[in-house]
Design a protein around this nucleic acid. Structure first.
Lengths: 349, 349
DNA sequence: CGCTATGATGTAAACCTTTTCATCCAATCT
DNA sequence: AGATTGGATGAAAAGGTTTACATCATAGCG
C-alpha cells in the first residue's frame, strides 16, 4: 500500500508526507495537493475525505519542497543597524504586525555580514539570500551597500529611511524635514532666532542631516546669516545632550535658549543638565526632542517631540515588499511618511 | 556543454545552480558539492578551480534544495507575547546576537495563531513549522499551549521565563524570587514591615506571582501575619502605578511607605503620583522597580530596580536550542538566570 | 607483473511538492 | 447512436542539492 515501501519496523522519524496522506485517502498525491491549493477543481466528496485524513495525520506540507518549486518561502527579512531600544523596537513591531497580516514570516537581522563568499558558516551568518522572498533594509549612512548584494541576486529590496531614494528601488522614507521645520518654527515663536540651537547625533547619519538642514533653513529664514553656527553634532545618547548643555552652563550661555534635539535621549540629557544647574525647563530653556519615543511622554516635564511614525514605517516597508512580490513589474514606489510636532511641556506654551 | 540545454535566447531568470558551476568547471555536481561541504576529500587543484568558478558566477546554494535533504534551515524562531518596549527589545537583541554568533537566522513572531488546520494563508500566519529548526517561546500565562503544536510535530522547543519548568523540555527561566527577596529586604531595612507593599501587574502572569510570593515570604519572615494584604495586582503600565499611589494619597496613607513595583513602569507611575502630591522620593516614599530597563537609570530620581538579564535570557534560549539541535539526545537542560537588586536613588540609601 | 589498497571523481537515487498533460467516464448535443 | 464536451483524477516531470555507491587510475606491494 505504501508506495515508498517504508521499513515498517523502524520508528518513522521523518514527518509524514503528502504520499502518506494520498495512500491513506486512496487518492493520488496530485489530488491531495489540489485539495490544499486548488480546492475548487476537486469534487466535494474527495476533498472532504482528504481533509479528514490531513487532519487526522496532522499533515503539514514541507516548506522546502514547496519552496523548491514555487521559489517562495513567505519569509521577509528586516535588516536594521541595531535592534535595541524604543526606536527599532517600534519599527519591528510595525513590520511584524503587517507581515502577519499579509501572511508572511519575519526574519530580523542586525548584521548584514557575509555575501557570496566563503564558507558555509560565514554565508549563513549574513543575509539569508535565497531563503527570503524579500529584504527591507534600513540604511542610515552613505557607505552602506549591504543591500546591493541582495538586489543583484534578484531579491526584491525595499530601502527604509533613506533621504535620497535610489532610482528603480522601492523606498520608504521619513520626511524629517517637515517635522523638524515645524519644531523649529515652534521654538522661533517664543525665542530669538539667534538663541535657537540644534543638537544632533552623528553628522554622517541621513536623518541627522535632513533634520539639521530643515532647522538651518528655518532659522536662516528668520534672519540669521549663518545658521550653521547654531548646529552641533555628537552621538545619539543622553550623555551627549548632558555634555552639550553643561558646556553652555559653564560658559554662562544656558538661559533663554531654545533647543531642538536630534532625538529624545539627547533632549533628556539637556533637560537633566539644565535641572542639575538649577535652570528651569521650559521656563528658562525650551527643549524639543525627536522621534517621540515612549519616554517622551513619561518624563517630567513631559517632553515635546517630533513624532516619527516608526510602526508605520515598518509596516509600510513590509507592505511595499509584499506589493512588489505580487507584481514584480509595478513601477518603483516611494512611500513618504510625515513627521509632526507633538507639543507637551518641555517647550513651553 | 550545458547539460540542461537551456534556451540561450531567453534571459536566464532562475539563479545559477550547482549544475552551472559544474559545467563551467568541467566537473560533476557532486564535486562542486564536496568543495563546499567536504573540502578535504577533493584534490587541491580541483577545489581551487571550482572555488574560482563559484566566485566568478556568484553561486549561492539553493536553501530549499538543501533543506529538503538536510532537513535543516538554520532558522530559529523566537515567539513572544509582544515585541514592543524595552523588555522584549532586550530579549530580541540578545537572541539575535547569539543566533548570528552560532550561524543561525532569527525569525521573530508575536503571534502564534494557526496550527495544523485549514487554509494555506492561515497556516503560514502561524508558526513556520517545518521551516524552522527550533522554537524558543516565551510563556507568561498558564493556559498558553502554543508550543505544544511545535513540540508534537518534532520541532525542538525551548521554553522561556516559565517559573515551573515542564519535564522533558529545555527551559530558560528567570529567578525572580532571588531579586524580589533582595529588594524586599532592602526596603525592610529602613521601613516597618507593615508599611512595605508590592504593586504588581496581572496576577495570572508567572513572573508576577513569583515576585509576589518572594515578597510575601520576606515580609512574613519580618513578622507580618498576613503579608498578602500588602500585595496589589493590576496592569504593567504607568497608569496603574499612578492610580495605586493616588489612592493612598487620597486616603492619607502615602507617607512613610516602601514599595516594590512589578516593573519599572509601575514604579514610575508611583513616583510621579508621589511627586504630584508633593511627597518626596525617596525621602517620604521609597520605591524599587523591576526589570531594570533603560528608563530606570534615566529617571530622576534614578530608579532602584531589580535587574533582569534580558539579553542573557534571549541568548540563553538560542544557545539551548542550538545545543539541542547539535545533540538531540542530551538531557533536558534548565538554565536559571538570577536577578539582582540595583540600588540607585529612589529607594534611599 | 599482477594484485590490492587508496584517493579522486562521477552516477544516480532520494528528499517532497506543484503542475502540466493525459486519461477516463458520464452527460449533453446532434 | 455517435460525437463532443467537461469535470475529476492520475501519471510523471521538474526543481537543486546531498550522499551512498560505483568507477577509475595510480601507487604500493609481494
Amino acid at each position: 500500500m505504501n508506495k515508498r515501501g517504508r521499513n515498517q519496523t523502524e520508528p518513522a522519524k521523518s514527518a509524514i508526507s503528502i504520499q502518506d496522506v494520498a495512500d491513506e485517502a486512496h487518492v493520488s498525491i496530485a489530488t491531495v495537493s489540489r485539495v490544499l491549493n486548488n480546492p475548487e477543481v476537486v469534487s466535494a466528496a474527495t476533498a472532504a475525505k482528504v481533509r479528514e485524513v490531513i487532519q487526522r495525520l496532522g499533515y503539514v506540507p514541507n516548506p522546502f519542497a514547496q519552496g523548491l518549486i514555487t521559489r517562495a518561502s513567505r519569509v521577509l527579512c528586516l535588516a536594521l543597524p541595531d535592534i535595541h531600544g524604543e526606536f527599532y523596537s517600534g519599527l519591528i513591531r510595525g513590520a511584524d504586525a503587517k507581515a502577519h497580516e499579509l501572511g508572511y514570516h519575519l526574519l530580523v537581522s542586525s548584521e548584514a555580514r557575509g555575501g557570496p563568499g566563503a564558507t558555509r558558516a560565514e554565508r549563513s551568518t549574513g543575509l539569508a539570500l535565497g531563503l527570503i522572498d524579500g529584504l527591507a533594509i534600513m540604511i542610515t549612512e552613505p557607505g552602506d551597500q549591504a543591500w546591493t548584494t541582495a538586489a543583484e541576486s534578484g531579491t526584491p529590496v525595499v530601502l527604509i529611511d533613506m533621504e535620497a531614494q535610489r532610482p528603480g528601488v522601492d523606498c520608504v522614507l521619513v520626511d524629517n524635514a517637515v517635522g523638524a521645520a515645524e519644531a523649529t518654527r515652534h521654538l522661533l515663536a517664543g525665542t530669538p532666532a539667534a538663541s535657537v540651537f540644534f543638537v544632533g547625533g552623528a553628522s554622517e547619519n541621513f536623518d541627522t542631516r535632513a533634520r539639521a538642514e530643515a532647522f538651518a533653513s528655518e532659522v536662516g529664514r528668520a534672519g540669521v546669516a549663518l545658521p550653521e553656527n547654531q548646529i552641533s553634532y555628537g552621538t545619539y545618547n543622553v550623555e551627549w545632550g548632558y555634555t552639550w548643555m553643561q558646556e553652555r552652563v559653564k560658559t554662562g550661555r544656558a538661559v533663554g535658549i531654545g533647543v531642538l534635539a536630534g532625538n529624545d535621549e539627547i533632549a533628556m540629557g539637556i533637560v537633566q543638565a539644565a535641572e542639575d544647574a538649577g535652570i528651569r525647563v521650559p521656563g528658562q530653556v525650551r527643549v524639543v526632542g525627536f522621534d517621540d519615543t515612549r519616554i517622551a511622554s513619561l518624563l517630567r516635564p513631559k517632553l515635546s517631540s517630533v513624532r516619527v511614525p516608526l510602526q508605520d514605517v515598518g509596516a509600510a516597508a513590509i507592505a511595499a515588499l509584499a506589493a512588489r512580490l505580487e507584481d514584480p513589474q509595478r513601477p518603483p514606489s516611494i512611500t513618504r511618511l510625515a513627521t509632526s510636532l507633538v507639543v507637551r511641556e518641555s517647550s513651553g506654551g
